[in-house]
Design a protein around this nucleic acid. Structure first.
Length: 288
DNA sequence: ACTCTTGTTAAAAC
DNA sequence: GGTTTTAACAAGAG
């Protein structure tokens, strides 16, 4: 389940692997993935990838000498980009891949393939078909980007603004942190982790947080995501990087998936409940 | 057969 | 208009 750290991991790897490459062929295996754009392949033929940006969990590809064409890419829950270098025998290694996927690309869940002029290729796999690839013009890119709030990892993230906004939100803090139009990048895993670090219960009303708690939460959100990026993200059920490897931050999770275990900070029991419609993990003793 | 998993969004309620 | 809640989406794991 890719959140900001996982998407950033993919972005950095993709930049290293496909920027500067010319698209020689495109194959769409599932129309919904490309928004039923019948010209998807044709629009990309001959284009050279010049950069890959990110806002929140959304990636956007730019192309050389094309100021009005961009490809948005959202992994949603099970989207994965796999890069295959030429002549490489793909045996795969990610535990999330089915045996079919491990044997060859394209595999059962491959929704789109990009073939480059140098013989390498990039596959977009997405088991549940929630993810998408979309071609947009410059205004379309701006519209997409405008829907995202600031990222806690941004050096310019304004904690005072964060404090003031929280006071006006009339729902639980978990739902607020999951709202990408408010702050972007956090998903179910990192929200639970940030709340644990800040010692705040997920069901607390956002407006009830003290200045100290809200500040701790902003700092915790930033730190947990930055630390995860350094570990290549978290693999819980399905995340894999561009080579099919898992992320290594899973070992550093303090509450997510640890229901029934003991909190390493206070010895309390980690519980799992449902908040904001999501499985929610927290320490029943040291989070308040 | 049934429940659970989650990022985003549409729709409806307020 | 902004906020909030809920369901829907899809497919697999258990």
């Amino acid at each position: 389940m890719p959140e900001l750290p996982e998407v950033e991991t993919v972005r950095v790897q993709l930049i290293d692997k496909v920027v500067g490459k010319k698209i020689k062929g495109v194959e769409v295996f599932h129309d919904k993935t490309v928004g039923f754009d019948e010209d998807f392949e044709q629009k990309l033929l001959g284009k050279i990838i010049s950069d890959i940006g990110r806002v929140g969990k959304l990636l956007f590809f730019s192309f050389k000498n094309e100021s009005d064409l961009f490809m948005l890419a959202h992994l949603k829950m099970t989207g994965q980009f796999f890069y295959v270098s030429k002549n490489e025998v793909v045996t795969g290694g990610g535990h999330s891949m089915t045996e079919n996927d491990m044997r060859e690309f394209p595999g059962r869940h491959t929704r789109c393939a990009f073939y480059f002029a140098d013989g390498t290729s990039l596959y977009f796999n997405d088991m549940r078909i929630f993810g998408y690839l979309r071609l947009v013009d410059k205004p379309g890119l701006e519209t997409a980007k405008s829907g995202y709030g600031p990222e806690p990892i941004d050096p310019d993230f304004d904690i005072d603004w964060f404090l003031q906004k929280l006071k006006r939100r009339n729902t639980n803090i978990k739902a607020v942190l999951l709202d990408q139009t408010f702050v972007s990048g956090l998903g179910n895993i990192y929200v639970d982790e940030a709340l644990w670090r800040a010692k705040v219960l997920p069901e607390r009303q956002a407006s009830s947080l003290s200045k100290r708690e809200a500040t701790a939460l902003a700092v915790a959100s930033k730190e947990v995501m930055l630390e995860s990026i350094l570990k290549g993200g978290t693999t819980f059920q399905s995340f894999a990087d561009t080579e099919g490897r898992e992320g290594n931050f899973r070992d550093y999770l303090k509450v997510f998936g640890r229901q029934g275990q003991i909190c390493e900070r206070c010895g309390g029991e980690i519980k799992k409940i449902r908040v904001a419609g999501r499985g929610t993990h927290f320490c029943s003793k040291c989070q308040r």
